[in-house]
Write a protein that binds this DNA or RNA. Structure first.
Lengths: 172, 172
DNA sequence: GCAATATTGACAAGAACCTGTCAAAATGGA
DNA sequence: TCCATTTTGACAGGTTCTTGTCAATATTGC
């Protein structure tokens, strides 16, 4: 087909499988969270906020998303009374998110449902297999993290792209 | 923390790692495809269309997305001259997508870039590890596929949800 | 054949991401 | 202290994917 060597080929299969799995997992997550007005995205943020007051930017860094994306979801969760913004003694603009009692209750319910679901799926697979898979994915994740954007030759398109000045990616 | 048993716990870690990896892969994919006016989403569809004329619905089923989502992306790709809709002798409404020469060229370029990238990342991991991971992910995917939406007790919220009439999920 | 059912394209609205920009606020170095 | 840089919230606009609906078309069972 193309210039894929064996490793590249199986890595590509891994990528496709991750896309497919990601879809299925979001679907399952939405089903899990929807009874209490959450969603996969909201749940993930609440799961971080749960561990103590934290700012939007910090959550974005932890989750590997952009600041703006987390801000949007956080704002809509505040509107829905799931979280509150507390004044931050260390920063006037950057407020601290905390769970409200409603948010706490929603998260509790979701985590309970999640445990049932995760145990049910988890028991269909061996501990060693799951552990091995996690380990590989972590290593792959690290590879991607270290992989530099420019692979040396950008070839003849858009010749003035050679500046590389990197005007503030918001993403970490 | 909660009622997660060992399998449930490691499965949960797997889930989180998949989310993180999915984000990184989309990022890499967009970087790969952007020079020729593609994106990860468009690329994936073209990769299916490449193997022969196929309808929107069929592609949606293959990719695990909704019909409407693929239709939207396909329509915008047609506007951009990457694909064409041919009359389908077997179905008056459901046209067949095919690559135009522009689409062909864009896909060729992307696949070439992809091969370089996949080989570069792939060589940082052993064949056995990658293969094992793919295998586990496939099994997990199957587990999720077979996992039925209703886990017996929906508990006391929204009592009239007991109908289960399942008004046409568009998703397979 | 014909009627119930399923599939399909089109359209609408919304969720969850992204990039880019601006001004306010914080930080760090001279 | 003061000025350049960085961080942050707010806002705008775009992409991808979702759910839900409608009417047109296919398919299936009788």
């Amino acid at each position: 087909m193309d210039k894929l060597n064996p490793n590249g080929k199986i890595f590509t299969e891994l990528v496709l499988e991750i896309f497919r799995l990601n879809g299925r997992l979001l679907e399952a997550g939405d089903r899990l969270t929807q009874p209490v007005g959450l969603s996969s995205a909201r749940w993930q943020i609440l799961g971080v906020v749960e561990h103590g007051p934290i700012t939007v930017s910090q959550v974005a860094r932890v989750m590997g998303l952009t600041r703006q994306s987390v801000q949007q979801t956080a704002n809509s969760m505040e509107k829905d009374g799931l979280i509150e913004f507390l004044d931050n003694p260390l920063h006037r603009r950057s407020k601290l998110m905390t769970l409200t009692s409603v948010g706490r209750k929603s998260l509790d319910y979701t985590q309970e449902q999640h445990a049932v679901w995760a145990n049910r799926i988890g028991r269909e697979h061996s501990l060693e297999c799951l552990r091995a898979a996690v380990e590989v994915l972590r290593q792959v994740s690290k590879s991607l993290e270290h992989d530099t954007p420019l692979p040396a030759d950008t070839a003849e398109l858009d010749t003035d792209t050679t500046d590389t000045t990197d005007t503030h990616h918001e993403r970490v």
